[in-house]
């Protein structure tokens, strides 16, 4: 039976709303960066298939993430598919931890989150911005960036750790502020 246009729209709107949060969740379970898209798509396809059994008064995002967690758990059981996971034992620890965590307070809806990330990147110093661009836009690794920026690879990696830490705080703060007073980011 073909889905009605209304149901399709409803589902796709929910996917658009939860896309960012889903990807972050999948990555935080230890899925390799190159496979996040694939696992997130698997989760959405499964959600499509089970849409008729989903109680729409419930939290769609939470349901979608539970499906994604199950997919990653299944990955860990299947030898041949573990390539999508960074490290089996590490992923097992992260999944267990995720299971015990309650939902985070901050909403990560599109496009506010991406705007917040871009604003937060804009607040970084010029060298940090270059490191972010090189690593995440140009897909350069630390040794290549080190050569370009006249730094050591270790310093580049440490800088990236600090940038990611600062960025996470900055984005959460902006989104909380947005939720509280509805001001422009």
């Amino acid at each position: 039976m073909e889905p009605s246009d209304e149901e399709t729209r409803k589902f796709e709107t929910l996917v658009l709303q939860h896309h960012v949060r889903l990807r972050l969740f999948v990555r935080s379970l230890g899925v390799d960066a190159d496979w996040v898209d694939d696992v997130a798509q698997d989760a959405c396809l499964t959600a499509m298939r089970q849409w008729n059994s989903f109680d729409q008064s419930r939290d769609f995002g939470k349901w979608l993430r539970a499906i994604a967690a199950n997919i990653v758990r299944n990955e860990l059981r299947k030898e041949a598919r573990r390539q999508r996971i960074m490290h089996t034992e590490l992923a097992e620890i992260l999944i267990k931890r995720q299971h015990h965590l309650s939902a985070k307070a901050v909403s990560l809806d599109e496009p506010l989150t991406i705007a917040a990330v871009r604003n937060c990147i804009g607040e970084l110093g010029p060298k940090s911005q270059k490191v972010v661009e090189g690593r995440y836009r140009e897909d350069l690794r630390a040794p290549q960036l080190a050569e370009l920026l006249n730094m050591t690879a270790t310093n580049v990696r440490q800088m990236l750790v600090r940038i990611r830490r600062r960025l996470r705080e900055c984005v959460e703060l902006r989104l909380l502020k947005e939720a509280a007073d509805g001001q422009t980011l």
């Binding site: 972050l24 935080s28 960066a33 871009r118 995440y136 996470r168």
Partner: peptide, 10 residues
Amino acid sequence: LEAAELLVLA
């Protein structure tokens, strides 16, 4: 890991 994914998206 989450921050890295946010940077990828942005």
